[in-house]
Design a protein around this nucleic acid. Structure first.
Lengths: 253, 253
DNA sequence: CGCCGACTTGACATTAATCAAATGTAGTGG
DNA sequence: CCACTACATTTGATTAATGTCAAGTCGGCG
């Protein structure tokens, strides 16, 4: 019997190379990704339109702002960040993506990418030609439902980010960020309390609407208060309850 | 011959009662709404699943957080705001919606509304039963495409809001807000320079991540600098170029 | 006329940004 | 293996932006 959640697979630095299969049916992510709920037969049809895996080395971009849109990408291995250029030319990080998540959804409306997706480490994606996906969607109600759910959840996620940026203080923002990362790892079978940050402090600050100095100071403070253990990119959440209370804004500190 | 853009329909306070027809085909919003690009025949099929119009008086909610999701809503007349409750119980405004825009998209993923939609004035919506819409989507490629474009644009819109909240100073946020409202009115055939704010200063501040006092001070400053004329809810943009420069962050002020 | 809610204005406090070093870390080549 | 370099991160001092608190004014309505 296999435990449903596998914590601390690799205590020091979990690698998250969860998905190395070439077919959705053999991919351990099919529970969080597009094939959710499909029959074997349907999954095979989806497989048939998905191009070969594509490697994206750390620092390289999968697509860039203003590029034409033809494919969606499902992350198979690795982590990405998405950035938008604001009007004055600085980049703003709009999100971090991990295995099983789709990239490119925001380009469907305009047929042109509105952001740039950069690999935070050596990564691999499945290419999903959108026109072919659209045809499949017309024939497979389950797939249509999953696809809409994924898009809708993307909207929800972004609304939460607005909440974070619009109404939380720095401390709360960072707490929310850490708890959120943890729960996303948990959804993938990893520990929510022990993970590696794949992005720079810069990226975190940029995403949270804070400076790198503020992020650094806050991490130090959380560490001193016994909430976390921090060692470079490695995070261990020592007091989840108190961190969650901070994230919820129900803390008196 | 009719002018494609109608500016200053009602100089004092444009009412925006653009759409009073009972059928999509007769509705002046079918260019910005779901029926975009449909043939007469297809539009009739869409009409057939849309329930009667529903009135929502000012201050009333169309749906509330955690309510079950069964329908999407297309705004026919009036304006709405969407609010989320943050963990500490205060509400955060996540957006303002105007005629032709869809409400409820963020609930598809969870089958439960993640926000509350409140009418800012007496309004009317078209109810679109989602299950029936899903069936239609499977049969009408054009409708599917429009629907995905609408969802995708919702994602893009929210990413812009993140940009605003994450990387702009107060002055720039308000400038972006005003320019954005103007351009949305322009897309509906009204003047981008002359419109009524339907929401309270409170709502604006909340949406922009600012206090009501900051919004008030900024409006006063913009007025004194000759950018705007402000009279209660009535806004007239006197110097669009300078306001856009502020919004773009390319201004030295 | 007077009340009430919405908005504006002013004085002050606080948060987080900015500027400036100092320290740490990973990778490279001798 | 170690010195050297290029970044990444932390830390400290100071400042600027915006929030908070407290009046006050405006405008519509009973």
């Amino acid at each position: 019997m296999i435990a449903p959640l596998q914590f601390n697979l690799a205590p020091q630095a979990p690698t998250l190379r969860t998905c190395t299969a070439d077919q959705c049916s053999a991919c351990s992510l099919h529970g969080v990704c597009l094939p959710t709920g499909l029959s074997d037969d349907e999954m095979q049809r989806l497989d048939s339109i998905i191009g070969r895996r594509r490697r994206v080395p750390r620092g390289a971009s999968l697509f860039r702002t203003d590029e034409g849109f033809t494919k969606l990408y499902a992350i198979r291995v690795g982590h990405f960040k998405t950035c938008q250029l604001n009007a004055s030319g600085e980049e703003q990080v709009t999100g971090f993506q991990m295995p099983g998540e789709l990239l490119g959804l925001s380009a469907i409306g305009t047929q042109r990418h509105s952001c740039t997706a950069v690999a935070l480490e050596d990564s691999e994606v499945c290419e999903i030609p959108f026109t072919q996906l659209e045809s499949l969607l017309q024939e497979m109600p389950t797939l249509l439902r999953t696809f809409h759910a994924l898009m809708s959840r993307e909207i929800t996620r972004e609304q939460s980010a607005m909440l974070l940026l619009g109404s939380m203080r720095a401390e709360q923002r960072l707490a929310v960020f850490l708890v959120n990362m943890g729960s996303r790892y948990a959804a993938r079978g990893y520990s929510p309390y022990n993970f590696q940050l794949r992005m720079l402090r810069d990226d975190i600050g940029n995403y949270l609407g804070l400076t790198i100095e503020s992020v650094s100071r806050l991490l130090t403070r959380f560490r001193k208060e016994g909430l976390l253990r921090v060692s470079n990119r490695e995070i261990e959440i020592l007091d989840p309850d108190r961190l969650k209370a901070l994230a919820a804004g129900t803390s008196t500190t």
